[in-house]
Design a protein around this nucleic acid. Structure first.
Lengths: 411, 411
DNA sequence: AATAATTAATTCATGTTTATTTATTTATTG
DNA sequence: CAATAAATAAATAAACATGAATTAATTATT
């Protein structure tokens, strides 16, 4: 196999239901990459032990991944008896991914590498997002960013991920723009439209699910196998991680926290989005004669009076706790991961108060979940968007690893 | 390969993370069996088309499965140009499975065959279940039932599945037995204890999840890919089907509907089990001076005054609707499947009223789910228990098939 | 300090399993 | 009898396993 062939080799996608040799190899290649992404640099011998594959097979696979530019040798590890082991790590230059996040005030594009580092950023501001402006921005930015890359790097681009807020067409009222301004989002399929003009795969999820994927792939590996992820933005969205893998749902809408019913404290119920969202916070600011537009400008330096922010946090925490209790009972989750377009201290207060509210709910029969602050922070959505093609092409949906404890009841 | 080898051949389980040739073959064999179970008898040529495998490969695999006694030829189908196709169906005699269900008043065992038909039944009555009596009953019944089988049939036994109610050790109060009567259930692991004395795998799930598995495997294939299953018994339990597969959760407790919070109508929340369970119905009967013990004797001929049953259904439906709304938003589900230890008319009323209550909840942002009555009925739990080793050994966790529509957002 | 024994990582050559490809046979329709 | 589809046989190819050889360390001994 010559170098050219190796460069253009791909981790094959599985289209057929049946397995053949190339599906087997593709699976094993993804397995190696997934293990290294989760556990850090590993020598061939360790991969052989973890996978149960023969040393020879692992040797062949990893040499090929190295030749493909997806893995690099690290410094040999000495100090143990025997030949030193040569850990191999992900090659940052191995692949590039575009991530597009459509937001309330800004639409953003990032270009990340195989290691998850940002190579380029761009953003455009607007009063409200429109499909046409979004398409134009995406195409222009991809052209501009591509122009700064070498030919080799351009060949390494593996796809575009889009994080689009859920049900954008219903936002008109909340954004205070005319009723039909947002309607085009309903009928347009910007994923297909972009895919038609681009040479690589284009994937789309709702923005919070994308953020969740970032947490999962670029997180430090201490996350549990099953958790609910909540991202507080203009509205609130989420993602569901089951068996260590994002679960998208039949229509790609899993984790739609916004629509989950919570008790309204007066005997009825309302939706979580009505209380746990920045939109609601902005309404509270307006209601006292203030102006909430600063919320969208930066995620730092928010100066909000306690009379406003305290009850908002309290209500949001109560709603989030209710939703978490439901989710934990339903999906046997270990944790809630909270993140958002929020200053870190605010996010951390939300975590603490949610934990406190959770303690007030009758959890008999279920193990109380951990409440964990997200690692990706306010940028999780754009990172996450870019991570979609990465996981689609290079990773394996993998449950617990040998180290972790499987659930009882298996033979 | 001689006949003896073929008889003892097994659909190999995947223990290692890496794929080798036997894993590939095992996957393809399970794929064939799963397709035939879902779609009914299929000729080799159709399997080749569905799987994308070559005709030759399918020919080899299916002849082997036939030799193993897992598939049988049906009558050739003539009337089309070309050689007649010979559909192949599951061989009922191909495998046998024990299912043990531990219940409030009765513990039951069934022996089912590969087609899901009951070959034998046994039950024992008690005031409350104990681990020791359960173990003894299971072992004795397995011995007795095995004695009625031929040697060949005995060799075909592939495992035991146990459906155990969730958190049995907390039942003492509800069962009106002394506090510590149920405590042994907490520390005993009857799965391991039985597994130690039996030559085949022993699997355990909570009884409602088991029932859900029965619905999934023996249902008529019209179920959607993602649904919530609710089984109303002494308490209430459930199962979650995602991507066409039961999701058990890290601790095997997914679908714990009982513990899900629902608004109590007075501004607070309580757990679903407090309103949607036969235990609650029994309490209502007692409260009016009645006796609810008939509930556990038979699932027919319940004669309950409207003043009792109507509000029970109304409350249960409201709770179930709230829980369903949460689940649909969270997991992007298509349906709620309702079943239980209930007379059919009662179960159907529960379906109708739940649908009505669901219509009163603000579902904006989510597609309203179908409410479907279960097909397996009151016996779902014991069937489901027996179906656990069947799916573990012979089926593939398979998402949507070519016919079904995948979710948008894929490249 | 020099040397031998041991160990572990890696790779080479060869063998095995399983799927694919191509050609052939068989049964049926028109 | 020609056309067609199903099913199978033989030959080929892909990918993993096995066992031996190679390499480079550490550890024990002299």
């Amino acid at each position: 196999m010559n170098t050219q062939d190796q460069r253009t080799r791909e981790i094959r996608a599985q289209a057929k239901l049946g397995s053949d040799h190339s599906a087997m190899r593709a699976r094993n290649e993804r397995l190696v990459l997934t293990l290294i992404r989760r556990r850090g640099a590993l020598p061939k011998s360790e991969i052989a032990r973890l996978t149960g594959l023969s040393a020879q097979t692992v040797s062949v696979i990893m040499r090929e991944l190295e030749a493909d530019g997806l893995l690099v040798k690290c410094a040999p590890v000495r100090g143990k008896v025997g030949q030193p082991s040569v850990p191999m790590d992900l090659a940052a230059d191995g692949a590039l991914f575009f991530g597009l996040k459509v937001g309330r005030r800004r639409t953003e594009m990032v270009l990340i590498d195989f290691a998850g580092e940002v190579r380029a950023r761009a953003a455009v501001r607007h009063d409200h997002p429109t499909p046409d402006a979004t398409l134009r921005f995406a195409q222009d930015t991809i052209t501009t960013m591509s122009a700064t890359l070498t030919a080799t790097e351009r060949d390494r681009i593996c796809g575009l991920g889009i994080g689009l807020p859920f049900q954008l067409w219903d936002w008109a009222e909340a954004l205070r723009v005319p009723e039909d301004t947002m309607r085009p989002w309903r009928s347009r399929d910007i994923r297909s439209e972009l895919a038609a003009t681009l040479p690589w795969p284009v994937l789309m999820e709702n923005d919070a699910s994308a953020a969740c994927n970032a947490e999962l792939i670029f997180g430090d590996g201490t996350l549990p196998q099953n958790f609910l992820y909540a991202f507080v933005g203009f509205f609130i969205g989420g993602g569901l991680v089951l068996n260590g893998t994002m679960f998208a749902g039949a229509h790609g809408n899993a984790g739609a926290l916004a629509s989950m019913p919570v008790p309204d404290g007066r005997g009825g119920s309302r939706q979580l989005v009505e209380i746990a969202s920045l939109h609601h916070l902005e309404e509270r600011l307006r209601a006292t004669g203030g102006d909430g537009r600063f919320l969208w400008e930066s995620v730092e330096g928010w100066d909000i009076a306690p009379e406003i922010i305290d009850p908002w946090i309290a209500e949001a925490a109560r709603g989030l706790a209710h939703v978490t209790a439901s989710a934990v009972a339903l999906c046997d989750l270990d944790a809630l991961v909270v993140d958002g377009w929020l200053p870190t201290p605010l996010r951390d207060r939300l975590c603490v108060e949610t934990a406190a509210e959770l303690a007030r709910i009758n959890l008999s029969g279920i193990a109380p979940p951990e409440i964990i602050a997200g690692q990706a922070g306010p940028e999780a959505r754009e990172f996450g968007a870019a991570s979609l093609p990465l996981s689609a092409r290079f990773l394996l949906e993998l449950g617990s690893l040998p180290n972790d404890t499987p659930h009882p009841g298996e033979a």
